[in-house]
């Protein structure tokens, strides 16, 4: 399968790969996918006020899945939570020129973002 240059670039030079402290109140963690499906994405955001100041990912999956999550973290930094919640998988598909069989990778990234925001907000509610 031929990959686009952008996918290869994110795969070879992943942005924001790593982990934030999942126990911190300022950090929201989203883990989506399943090992038996061949895709697991962990996406974390660090929030100050309404703003995402940092984002990290770790992904088990194909090159497109890695690239989708890497790109997502790049975009998330500096966004407000509302803006992040509005991020659509189709924007990722377009930016990386993902073929139809790889669209689920971008869907997973969108789900991971929403799941991380949810986690952050549920922590805030408990305070």
């Amino acid at each position: 399968m031929a990959y686009t240059d952008k996918v290869i670039d994110h795969f070879e030079n992943p942005r924001n790969m790593g982990s934030l402290d999942k126990n911190s109140d300022d950090v929201g963690t989203g883990i989506v996918g399943a090992p038996e499906c061949g895709d697991v994405m962990k996406l974390q955001i660090q929030v100050e006020g309404e703003k995402i100041v940092d984002a990290k990912f770790k992904t088990f999956g194909c090159g497109s899945a890695i690239a989708s999550s890497s790109l997502a973290t790049e975009w998330l930094k500096g966004m407000t939570l509302t803006e992040a919640n509005d991020l659509k998988n189709t924007a990722i598909v377009e930016e990386l020129s993902l073929p139809p069989v790889k669209i689920h990778c971008s869907v997973l990234a969108e789900e991971a973002i929403k799941s991380a925001i949810e986690d952050f907000q549920s922590k805030k509610k408990q305070d």
């Binding site: 992943p14 982990s19 883990i31 962990k42 770790k58 992904t59 088990f60 890695i66």
Partner: peptide, 16 residues
């Protein structure tokens, strides 16, 4: 593996 959340969990002793 460095990039894999599953490897990280495995190393933390989490039963996947």
């Amino acid at each position: 593996r460095d990039m894999s959340p599953l490897w990280e969990m495995f190393k933390e002793g989490i039963d996947l």
